[in-house]
Write a protein that binds this DNA or RNA. Structure first.
Lengths: 103, 103
DNA sequence: TGACCATATCGAAATAATGCGATATCTATG
DNA sequence: CATAGATATCGCATTATTTCGATATGGTCA
């Protein structure tokens, strides 16, 4: 796990907000109506609604999401013309543990 | 507590290393021979030895230490011509708790 | 296939962080 | 008070990040 990349992600408050919004997609985002039934309830949120809520341009949010994916804080799945991102709880957990232990 | 400033401190690997070195001054730094008896064992380390170990210039380490102090990750005490820095365990603890809970 | 929508990538300008050398400040001491 | 040592601050050049608009890509559907 690349802690360095993770801390760089966290150094930007918009990215941190996105990360926390994704903890509870149901209250922070509209329902993902194009998501197939079997993928629902897994925390997936498409780029467009994240962009709108974050208040940055489409290219910026795409860049941010990519950084977070490189750091393995998010994973994504493309379904149709949409890309859905969700938290990678394993990395988040490991990060929290690392900080508690080594910081 | 300013999480934003804290995450910015952590975004630099040299600063993170300094923070972790200060967890165990006895093994990471030479003894602070000018420190008065009553201040020993409190984790204080002077700027010079941190600079040497970090491998950056004096002005750079001073700047880093100041950023970490602003973020309340470190506190400092001037004794004689030396400034001694040590970890602020309270902030570190609160940070770890915050991350575990909100991230 | 062609128009359309969502997302990704590219290129560039603005802003911020990095990290240095030079200089200032502060403290001790002769 | 003059000097010396430790640290802080200043000014600046370099590099990285931010963030945008423009464009490319990839999927959908008539």
């Amino acid at each position: 796990m690349n802690m360095d990349a993770i801390f760089k992600v966290l150094a930007n408050p918009v990215r941190v907000r996105i990360l926390t919004w994704l903890k509870d997609p149901d209250t922070n985002f509209p329902p993902m109506i194009h998501l197939p039934e079997e993928e629902k309830g897994k925390g997936y949120v498409c780029v467009g609604v994240i962009q709108e809520k974050a208040g940055v341009t489409q290219s910026t949010v795409s860049h941010y999401l990519n950084l977070m994916k490189q750091a393995e804080l998010l994973s994504c799945k493309r379904i149709g013309q949409w890309t859905y991102y969700r938290r990678n709880e394993e990395t988040l957990q490991t990060t929290a543990d690392y900080i508690a232990k080594h910081l």
